[in-house]
Design a protein around this nucleic acid. Structure first.
Lengths: 133, 133
DNA sequence: TATGCACCCTGTAACAACTACAGGGTCAAG
DNA sequence: CTTGACCCTGTAGTTGTTACAGGGTGCATA
């Protein structure tokens, strides 16, 4: 299959596929007579893996680690566990941050709707603590 | 105060402070005899505002808008409202995404702890649907 | 007095993870 | 036989920083 087909099969930008190749995440594919990239099922599988892992928020370096582990399936699962655990901790932190941010913003909005910017607490609330209001 | 003091007072990298100056988010400070940047309280307040807004997930362009509004306090609050409302919607989406991701990941982890990579469901689960397992 | 050392300066290049050209080649259909 | 959709390489842009390289300044200490 050509690059466009594989890209659309995985909801990936064509340029992104070439980018993954350039940074060594995707192996160099065969070329046809017109020098077009010619992909097989193994490329599709690998690209699908990369995209799903990216969707789940893994960085490309983490994806690289996971792919490395997939190539050594007889080893312990602990490394995969470690990567995912770190990731889970990060996610929990981000959720907490966003929730407190959400609280602040919705309070800001409630105040803000009362009047003009002169009374608007969005600006004031973001001013550093301890400065004159 | 010099740049290092202001940077550490706002938990900001010195290079980042200079960067904000370069892109016009922070006004040019006075210089002392040694050509060192010399900041006052107004710079500190503005930098604190920028950092807190960034922490809250505003882009630098949105920060620029908010700072613009702060400089014209007699205007309507509607613009601030609009920016914050868009942002609040984004935050809700991000929280939802992260929560579903969290569920998936923690399920993966539970499965993963059972054995070796050969049995590890993280890799399998991320493989494309429809491929041989 | 010299000599560290921490701090400051400018300017440029790197980072992630793409995305967007510019400027060209290939190929099937009308 | 040309229009359009697709493909190629290579370079440069994006956002928000961060990291040098290669210097200058200022204070304390041996």
């Amino acid at each position: 299959m050509k690059i466009g087909e594989m890209a659309s099969a995985t909801a990936t930008n064509i340029e992104t596929v070439r980018h993954y190749e350039k940074i060594g995440l995707l192996p160099l594919p065969a070329r046809d007579a017109a020098n077009y990239r010619s992909y097989g099922q193994e490329h599709l599988a690998r690209l699908s893996f990369i995209r799903r892992a990216r969707d789940l928020g893994f960085t490309l370096d983490q994806v690289r680690e996971l792919l490395g582990l997939a190539d050594h399936r007889d080893q312990s699962c602990a490394a995969v566990d470690a990567i995912a655990t770190v990731h889970l901790t990060e996610i929990d932190r981000k959720i907490a941050d966003l929730q407190s941010l959400r609280g602040e913003l919705s309070r800001f909005l409630g105040d803000c709707r009362r009047g003009t910017v002169a009374d608007c607490l969005i600006i004031e609330t973001l001013a550093p603590a301890g400065l004159p209001r």
